[in-house]
């Protein structure tokens, strides 16, 4: 039942034991197996080496492997836990787990904080927020005057930086999200609950057969 192929593919992609991954994440063993199908597809779209390269990530997100995007870069960097320039299967599953509907909100809030803390200083700084607003405007072909951008950033800091020290710390971020829960809506992918339906071919490769 395709065992030779599936074992080979698993070795190449740093395949980790689904039981271990399931025990560490919000996924069931079956869901981890299904994610492997998705991972195989993404990791072979340009370079068939069982690792997700940034170009493959961009291709999946934008249908364009050359599209530069600050936010996609940040997501990629957070998924690439080992910081070796590629996403391995274990990293993929553990990071995607943050987006599972059953994952505690506090994990989602913390992941979003790290995403927006561009320079990893432990704070979201004013300059970082402005840089992200400008990146979003650029991505959306929206043009706003510098005054308007400054006003948006200022207003957000008045709301979020409750200590008034010019930077948002994790505690302020948590309180800000509690008052604005829509900010972490993007941190939940309802689709992840149906992953076994979306990628049913895992059944054919299941280790139960081995």
């Amino acid at each position: 039942m395709g065992c030779y192929y599936s074992k080979r593919a698993r070795q190449e992609s740093g395949y980790e034991d689904p039981t271990t991954l399931a025990s560490e994440t919000s996924f069931t063993v079956n869901e981890v197996e299904a994610l492997f199908e998705l991972f195989k597809k993404l990791s072979s779209s340009i370079i068939d080496d069982g690792l997700i390269h940034k170009e493959e990530f961009q291709l999946a997100l934008f249908r364009n492997s050359n599209k530069k995007n600050l936010f996609a870069d940040r997501v990629f960097d957070l998924f690439d836990v080992k910081r070796n320039g590629v996403i391995e299967f274990g990293e993929f599953v553990r990071s995607l787990s943050v987006f599972h509907p059953n994952t505690p909100e506090i994990d989602k809030i913390s992941f979003a904080f790290r995403l927006y803390d561009l320079r990893q200083t432990g704070f979201i700084e004013r300059e970082e927020l402005k840089e992200m607003v400008l990146a979003l405007l650029n991505e959306s072909d929206l043009v706003l005057s510098d005054d308007v951008v400054e006003t948006i950033v200022d207003k957000t800091f008045v709301d979020a930086d409750s200590k008034g020290d010019g930077k948002i710390d994790p505690e302020e971020w948590k309180e800000f999200v509690a008052r604005n829960p829509s900010l972490i809506k993007i941190m939940t992918l309802p689709y992840l609950k149906d992953i076994t339906l979306a990628f049913p071919s895992f059944v054919l490769n299941s280790e139960v057969e081995d």
Binding site: L42, N69, M132, L136, I152, F176, N180, L183
Partner: peptide, 25 residues
């Protein structure tokens, strides 16, 4: 009265943050 957008609300609309595209077949 003008509504001033929350900067985080604005950036959360980025396509780069919309991971549902990873699941497109």
């Amino acid at each position: 009265r003008p509504v001033i957008m929350n900067a985080f609300e604005l950036i959360s609309t980025s396509q780069g943050l919309n991971l549902s595209n990873l699941f497109e077949k």
